[in-house]
Design a protein around this nucleic acid. Sequence first.
DNA 1: ATTGATGCAAATCGTTTGCATTTCA
DNA 2: TGAAATGCAAACGATTTGCATCAAT
Lengths: 141, 141
Amino acid sequence: MSVNHFKDKLALKGLKVTPQRIAILEAVHDLNHPTAEKVIGYIREKYPNIATGTVYKVLEVLVENDLIKKVKTDKDIMRYDGIMKSHHHLYSSDSKRIEDYFDDELNLLLKNYFEKKDINGFTIEDVKVQLIGKFKEKDLF
Amino acid sequence: MSVNHFKDKLALKGLKVTPQRIAILEAVHDLNHPTAEKVIGYIREKYPNIATGTVYKVLEVLVENDLIKKVKTDKDIMRYDGIMKSHHHLYSSDSKRIEDYFDDELNLLLKNYFEKKDINGFTIEDVKVQLIGKFKEKDLF
DNA sequence: ATTGATGCAAATCGTTTGCATTTCA
DNA sequence: TGAAATGCAAACGATTTGCATCAAT
């Protein structure tokens, strides 16, 4: 992903294109479901004086503009995801590891299922599946 | 749910049965997906001098012993659930409301689906579905 | 009696906020 | 230029921790 690609994404949303925003967008895409702290650490290597407050503010703006997503975790720390295509998540039950899980067959299955299912007084907008389990390979951190 | 029922649950896990633990277990069952703060507020009406630290510690113990569950939310505040039977959650996309969702047909569907599906190097232990959408009735708070 | 639970207050940590300064459109 | 973004540091709020005291087994 080139820097220009990120510039375009920002511009398309009518957001001001700043080096901080580009760097943050890039960081979220480069890292695997980073916390805000990870993003800050990553960016500070090349851009030492970015403020933590700025990072939090920008992350919020990016989420509001559908450029990144917030990921729920069992713990209380928020994590971010640069992939906007609909997907689910694999959670390691014994570590902090999270991986993306793409499965169009599952999406179709769920779509069909909930189309014919009427839940009391609830209108479904989105369905997310969390698979909790164990990764066979050792966790990498 | 009687107090004795909660006493039994604690004793069965080999936990010491204390009035605080009973009150917290009761609170989580009486309230709808309460935050720790809600639990504290609820208990303090009848038991004014329970310490916040104690409530957090007890909630953690109860989760570890599978007497209650932690519920993920979009926000960073943890919430608790006294229902241990496998179930999913309905999340209101525009409020903090969370409701339990029971659906054995869905559970079966998912079970069958993932039994024949092999995910790279991942062993599934549990599958949780989050339905995000809107409740037809006005939210009650 | 002994082990573990509680209360209290201070500490921690992720996140938010206010405001003066700087930057992008 | 002017609105919006940044940096900084202080404030916040949920949760945790240490430790002396107290209660359940």
